[in-house]
Simulated scan of single mutants.
Amino acid sequence: MSRTLQLAEQLISRPSVTPEDAGCQQILGERLAALGFRLETIEGGPADFRVTNLWAVRPGSADATSARTAAFAGHTDVVPTGPIEQWRSHPFTPTHRDGRLYGRGACDMKTSLAAFVVAIEEFLAATPEPRLTLALLLTSDEEGPARDGTVVVCDTLAARGERIDYCIVGEPTSVERCGDMIKNGRRGTLSGKLTVKGVQGHIAYPHLAKNPVHALAPALAELVAINEAGGWDAGNAFFQPTSWQVSNIHAGTGASNVIPGSAVIDFNFRFSTESTPESLQQRVQAVLDSHGLDHTLSWTLGGLPFLTTPGELVEAVQQAIRDETGIETELSTSGGTSDARFIARICRQVIEMGPVNASIHKIDEHIAVAEIEPLKNIYRRTLERLEALLPT
């Protein structure tokens, strides 16, 4: 059994459902401390939702003018298992079947964490005194609300003036083979809750009431038309056009003979770097105003878009994947959000790269055992290439 596989199994066996860490960070921290890393635990959240974060750093030997910090980042928490009886084996008992390792977190993302640490161990064994500063950022609040996790660590580092130059987030980004896709950016997410006010009344006497659903319908149709026409923005070379989608509409008392007093619609933008939260809010507000709706509208910004254009980190990862697997990887900004959106505030180059994502969050989550060592080797090769960029 490889050391990466062994460590991955140790982590999978810990039932670290958000916000629990269940000792995962201690396991990883002990391995890092033995390599000379300085460990800092940062906790957050209310008493009934305590989040554990780990920031680990090993300073390099480069002088101040050429110093660079390369970090790995990820989460030790996992999503709930779902009905345990539907799993072929217990989700927190690492199990092998047909060349695959099964268990909650096998793909998202405990194998990546194990690969991080073993890659660092091998890199330092070959380069005991690197010029590159190495770091690892871990949280137990990525699969949950993400209010007390990576964002808190990044805010702490920003307040101290600490920077990261390169960061690889171990999210499962691959599609068919390890390394066939990396994320060099993600769209932003902006949610809105619109409440249109009416006057409740008997459905047989509509002249004594005001139906908010009827009032909302023309404005909703206009917003849908803008979206279908791709009218929010055109996207760019890295991003698809901004998308707007309704997630819920609710009105009524449950009775078929009552005109509702209000209608509520929940919607979400996934937006490119061609739009800003302010520009999208203004567009929506203009539509609502043009229809004279009596309404309230609240906004929640879940994350800004980020983009790492091809440069030192992207090229280092691409070459590491090429050397290890022969694959020419695809750059993508598709999919949902990740903690990379917080890291991008303090790091000029951030990418996501990890295992095949077909089974994440599913019953019988798994990873092909044959892809575990290549994943670790890609991480190690990336460190080697970043080290080689620094002047001697």
Score class of each variant (00 low, 15 high):
A8L: 07
E9W: 00
L11D: 13
L11V: 09
I12K: 03
S13C: 07
S13V: 01
S13T: 03
R14F: 00
R14Q: 14
R14T: 08
P15F: 08
P15D: 11
P15N: 13
P15G: 10
S16F: 01
T18C: 15
T18K: 10
P19F: 02
P19R: 06
P19E: 05
E20T: 07
E20K: 15
D21L: 07
A22S: 15
A22F: 04
G23L: 05
G23A: 05
C24I: 12
C24Q: 13
Q26S: 03
Q26W: 00
Q26N: 09
I27L: 15
I27A: 09
L28N: 05
L28Y: 00
L28H: 06
L28F: 02
E30V: 06
E30M: 02
E30F: 02
E30Q: 15
R31N: 09
R31A: 14
L32E: 05
A34L: 11
L35N: 12
G36Y: 12
F37K: 13
R38A: 15
L39C: 10
L39T: 14
E40P: 01
E40N: 09
E40G: 01
T41W: 02
T41Q: 06
I42C: 08
I42G: 11
I42F: 09
E43K: 10
G44Y: 07
G44K: 08
G45S: 04
P46V: 06
P46T: 02
A47T: 13
D48A: 05
D48K: 04
D48S: 07
F49S: 04
T52F: 00
L54T: 11
L54A: 11
W55C: 05
V57Y: 04
V57D: 13
R58Y: 02
R58T: 03
R58S: 03
R58M: 02
G60R: 08
G60D: 05
S61F: 01
A62E: 09
A62L: 06
D63P: 01
D63M: 01
A64S: 13
T65P: 00
T65Y: 06
T65C: 03
A67G: 01
A67R: 13
A67N: 01
R68A: 13
R68W: 01
T69I: 09
T69L: 07
A70K: 00
A70D: 05
A70I: 00
A71D: 08
F72M: 04
F72E: 05
F72R: 09
A73K: 00
A73I: 02
A73M: 13
T76G: 10
T76C: 13
T76R: 12
D77R: 08
D77K: 08
V79A: 11
P80S: 13
P80M: 13
T81A: 15
I84D: 09
E85Q: 08
Q86L: 15
Q86K: 15
Q86T: 11
W87M: 09
R88F: 03
S89V: 02
S89T: 11
S89I: 00
H90I: 03
H90F: 06
H90C: 00
P91G: 11
P91T: 08
F92D: 12
F92Q: 14
F92E: 14
T93N: 02
P94F: 04
D98S: 09
D98N: 14
G99L: 10
G99I: 08
G99V: 05
R100K: 15
R100V: 01
R100G: 00
L101K: 07
L101W: 04
L101D: 03
Y102R: 02
Y102L: 04
Y102T: 06
Y102E: 06
G103I: 10
R104V: 06
R104K: 14
G105C: 10
G105D: 11
A106D: 10
